[in-house]
Design a protein around this nucleic acid. Sequence first.
DNA 1: ATGAAAGCGCTAACAT
DNA 2: ATGTTAGCGCTTTCAT
Lengths: 357, 357
Amino acid sequence: MVKWIYQKPGGTKTMTVTIKDVAKEAKLAVSTISKYMNGGKVRPKNEQIIKEVVERLGYRPNNFARGLRNSRSYTIALLTPNMEGEHSARMISSLEDQVKKMGCFLNICCYQDSIEHIKSYVEYLTEKNVDGIIVSPIKTTEDYLEPARRAGIPIVILEDTYGIENCDVLQVDCASASYQIVEHLIQQGHRKIAVIKGTEGMTTSRERLNGYLRVMEDYGYPVKEEFLIDGDYDYRSGYEGVMKLWQLGERPTALFVTNYHMSVGALVAINRLHIRVPEELSVVVFDDMTLSTIVRPRLTAVHQPLEELMEKACELIEKRMNGDFEGFPGKWRLKARIVYRDSVGKPQTESKRLESA
Amino acid sequence: MVKWIYQKPGGTKTMTVTIKDVAKEAKLAVSTISKYMNGGKVRPKNEQIIKEVVERLGYRPNNFARGLRNSRSYTIALLTPNMEGEHSARMISSLEDQVKKMGCFLNICCYQDSIEHIKSYVEYLTEKNVDGIIVSPIKTTEDYLEPARRAGIPIVILEDTYGIENCDVLQVDCASASYQIVEHLIQQGHRKIAVIKGTEGMTTSRERLNGYLRVMEDYGYPVKEEFLIDGDYDYRSGYEGVMKLWQLGERPTALFVTNYHMSVGALVAINRLHIRVPEELSVVVFDDMTLSTIVRPRLTAVHQPLEELMEKACELIEKRMNGDFEGFPGKWRLKARIVYRDSVGKPQTESKRLESA
DNA sequence: ATGAAAGCGCTAACAT
DNA sequence: ATGTTAGCGCTTTCAT
């Protein structure tokens, strides 16, 4: 009957205190205790007694037993490929708040860009009966989300679906944000605008590039092939992108870097080459992080609505959880906003400095 | 008997398939199925049958029921204050691997530097019966870990304990790493070495400063008060630190930045002021991240043994979980190593450039 | 408002 | 190797 679960360092033994123990000690029925524990009404006198006993015995309801009955875990899971960069940090921070508001906990699962990992995580989370899954997907044709879908767990996909169907998806409208920020450059008088592209094949990189391409087209300015620099959303390509650009016979007067990591790299290169911003080069970047404000000049940037994104994700999960499938499966696109700072100026007529370090 | 758990979008209903269903369908006993599911031996013929039935019915063991029996969740939790920086990313990546090796899953809980959050997370994890908790603590006198300790959940504290007792603790030997890296500077001929300090009151910042102070003392070089710059482990203080330093009448010839965030800031300032590294200023930093290698010159840095740290943490948890309390509660200090790159040179006799931007 | 008792799905001890 | 069965701790009818 008594279950010794743990040999404490000191040598004393501990046993789990169950709802039965509390009932016995309080001289009440198990069901009464249960009711009280779930916020039900009990006689004030009994409430006192129970409270005292629970406290004294240090009783905590067993989560497994509880889950076994009502199959809820009060947990929302986030499936993310990695934890790099402020982007993840900001997302998690917002999500944390939202999830707390739902009375749930957040279970962050980092699948390390591995298909194997994400598959086993989905199975794990399904077995755990999490209340919902928010996923930043990996590129694969496998439908790794199937177990969760079958178990009826609400799923929200962020950004790229890579072909996965039958899930709600949430995106940031990168195309229009890129359009706007490049348009800002144009309105300042820039024509020679370079762009460092994102990873080939990703929806976000395509959209961000498209935004650029479309303004140029709409304003009727030609796009120079050499100003379209390949990138892969990583530091190094930002660094090298600027290096390449500065070796060009005709240099651009403005640069649009399409994500945060690359903009760090680009800045390092810019400083290294002693390029003066915005005199010689105006710079705008996608993603607005701490760095944007600590760097001089501060960066004009696209600020992604990560808070709204997470809010909407939780809202959707709650809705689906409650059996409301209005608009399922749906796609929502949230607008980003541009934060104007000091890294954009008018182009100078002759700004080429030949003696750049 | 039949339990409708979820109203699927389509309108079809789903019911949970249990081990009993599998048994019935396979015409075998539940215990045989259970055995099979847990990797036990069954007759080859039956193995085939079970496999087929499990597949066909889409059976997945109920995690709650399982946990209710053996009170294990096969989950290791990481309690971390935030997700900022590559440090967290690297830690999580290593931990992920280790945890997988133990046949467990990693539950990352980000408590957002909030005492309230960490407290409720500990309770949550305790109720969830996680197999172990690894925690990067928050500064408080409250013993928020008590619920977990009482439940007998193995706990490993990383770095600073802020006074919490009765837990195993794992630290990186910052003092000796700092000593070594500053010693390297000295051996290259530097005497005027500045340091940007970490957050007041943290063990790590104290140790990193101490390492510096001790070499200087051991070599008999005086420490100039103006070369001790206050910092708070954040970007901005790195940036401003360099700015202050360069306004000094007598500038240092070498700089030791005591963490990653500050070194990003410092680099930005260095580039901004067109300070040539290592000709005018040799730079060494604590924490070795991607940036260290993409920046030119590449940075000489202290590389923290995050992999070993996580490995040791898991090892300890497994040990404690199995009732082995040898050396409990213990403290282990792992050695960091120095990665020598190109940011350190000999000091120049007269390198002050008065026209710095 | 309270109590008695049936099971949630699973594992493990025991019997065959 | 397989089958039978007693609970794990809890919630939830259904009586009282």
